[in-house]
Design a protein around this nucleic acid. Sequence first.
DNA 1: AACCGCGCCTGTTCGC
DNA 2: TGCGAACAGGCGCGGT
Length: 269
Amino acid sequence: MPELPEVETVRGAMSRHLVGRAVTAVWTSGKKLRRPVPRGHLRSLVGDRFVHARRRAKYLLLELESGRVLLVHLGMTGNLLLRQERGGHDHMRLELDAGPPLVFSDPRRFGLVDLLLPGEVEVDPLLAHLGVEPLSDAFETDYLLARCRGRQRPIKNLLLDGRVVVGVGNIYASESLFRAGIRPTTRACRLSRARVERLVAEIRGVLEHAIRLGGTTISDYVGAGAGGHFQQQLAVYGRADDGCRVCDAPVKSIVQAGRSTFYCPKCQR
DNA sequence: AACCGCGCCTGTTCGC
DNA sequence: TGCGAACAGGCGCGGT
């Protein structure tokens, strides 16, 4: 499941291999993703050229010479890559003036492909209400402390709230809380300033580490390029009943707001 | 206002 | 062995 490091890995690949290429032909599957893929609109991409590959939260923003933006979200199982072969779960194929086509593939169809007109990025409802980027300067102790104030909900649920901070998904929420020594069930408002400071640092640290390793490749998700190697680094996620890598106590698995959470009951208080 | 549960999807894993 | 059930979860939405 692509989280921020996986999306960032794909962005890097697009920056290196897609930028500079012009679209020569467009094919879509006609199947509905999170939004219907705007087939006719996408056809107007022919002749346009990619000039930038950006990221906001887990959205990829592929900017074109015309000022339009190809908006892509990988959802749970989506992948954006340059490849020649056709796949059974392909939903968009853009033939380019050089190299293999740009393909969006997504078996479970939780993903999204849309084409935004110049100026629409700022007002698109999907992008307008997003919280701060966890790797930006805006994400610091006082910010998260303020967002925790008065919040009764568990800190783990708050970390998954995209209006607070973006890009932290289920895996990195568990992992960063483990690193910070904070139990995921702790009410946000009960965290001291020092613990929030530690949490901010660990969220940043775990995301940067995962980006360096090319993201986490788990289950059915394979990132662009060589694939990620962060999976071996996971301390608690997906390790229910296994020994904690620090103290060997069995890792606990619980459900919070319908999502699985993993933590070490001894290291996290 | 704050917060949770649901539904969208389908490949994989689990239990009988 | 084979089958259906449960599970995985990003995200927006609707309900409490």
